[in-house]
Amino acid sequence: MARSDLSATIYDCLDDVETIFGDTVTALEDDGQLVHVDFAHSKSREFDLVFGADGLHSKVRSLVFGLEADFEHHVGLVVCALELEGYRPRNELVAVTQTTIGVQTMRLSLHHDATLVLFTFRDDRPIPLHDVEARQELLRTRLRGIGGEAPNILEHLPRAKSFYMDRASQIRMPTWSRGRVALLGDAAAAPSLLAGQGSALAMVGAYVLAAQLRRTQGNHQQAFAAYQRQLQPMIQDKQDAALQLDIAFAPKDRKQLYMRNATIRLMGLPFVSKLVMARSLRDPIELPSW
């Protein structure tokens, strides 16, 4: 996908921060004083602290805390996103959706005649994360026969500018830090597609952690504990609430489909949307001052 405005803004602020692209961490060793880090392509380095902000499938988390399977909680859905150029039909400033039992399609128009298509569907099969062709074949198999725009979209699939598919999961961990290593964002506590706000929560987490490190004058043990103590209850509440929202993305049966459609129609009434959404968009957290 094209670099988002948020990521571009963050990157443009990193004047004094060394940035390395095209590499990944292969080993971490915390000796209590420093963290020794090995990279796939660069020479080994030593750091005072290491923060794993590398997403749902965090390499840092697996190296320091153990297998992903110990912390991942699959919510029963698969999410797929692809970007198409020159796709028709095209509707400006409108999200076009088609929802059937177990599957939802959403289409959004982007700049420069690009279209973003999002699929969510119920499936418990493992996702071949490193095999694009296998993932695309899984998508074709799962969407076969649902009608609507799906056949047209699938015809464009080989020419997709970008393609993403993964299980929708939450990460739930008893602790977000170990020694001199701490986790941020989805690596520590992914709320999943159902909850949304993943980027916002990651930004809030980074701010709180930085403020706590400043407040404790670099005492990482105190800072890590305060960071988790402040954020974990709120994020767990969001995770718990999200598990009730799968009906909005892929209804299990005809009854859920009817309830989902009725709710969407009611959301068109201003007082209903305000009542339903206001609480979910207002987080009960006070950011530390600097």
Rank of each mutant, 00 (worst) to 15 (best):
P191Y: 02
E133C: 03
A189Q: 10
L201N: 04
I127H: 04
V79K: 06
A134E: 12
E149V: 02
D113L: 10
I171N: 09
G196C: 07
V132F: 08
A81D: 11
R125K: 15
Y207W: 09
R122K: 06
F163R: 05
S192I: 01
M173G: 07
G86H: 11
F119N: 02
F119R: 01
Q170V: 13
T175S: 11
A187Q: 05
L201W: 03
V96A: 06
G179W: 06
E83G: 08
M203D: 05
N91D: 05
R140D: 15
E85P: 03
T141M: 09
D124M: 08
M106Q: 13
Y207T: 13
D113T: 10
F121E: 06
T175A: 07
A195L: 06
V132G: 03
A190C: 15
T141P: 01
M203F: 12
Q136N: 09
L193Y: 04
L82I: 02
M173D: 09
E85T: 11
A188L: 08
P89W: 08
L108I: 15
P126I: 10
R107E: 08
H111C: 12
R172A: 14
S162C: 14
A134H: 04
I153D: 01
L118Q: 15
R107D: 00
F119M: 06
V94N: 06
E149K: 01
R125M: 12
M165Y: 04
P89M: 07
Q136T: 10
D113N: 15
L184G: 02
P158Y: 08
A195Q: 03
L77E: 04
T100Q: 11
A160K: 02
L209R: 02
R178E: 13
E83T: 14
A211Y: 01
Q136I: 11
R144F: 07
I153S: 01
D123N: 15
P128C: 03
K161R: 14
L82P: 00
G179N: 02
Y207E: 13
Q217A: 14
L84F: 02
A160H: 10
T115E: 13
I146T: 15
A168V: 15
L129C: 03
A188I: 09
V181D: 06
V208T: 13
G196P: 07
G185A: 08
T105L: 15
Q197D: 11
V181E: 06
P174L: 08
A150T: 04
G218A: 09
A206N: 07
G148S: 04
G148F: 00
L157F: 11
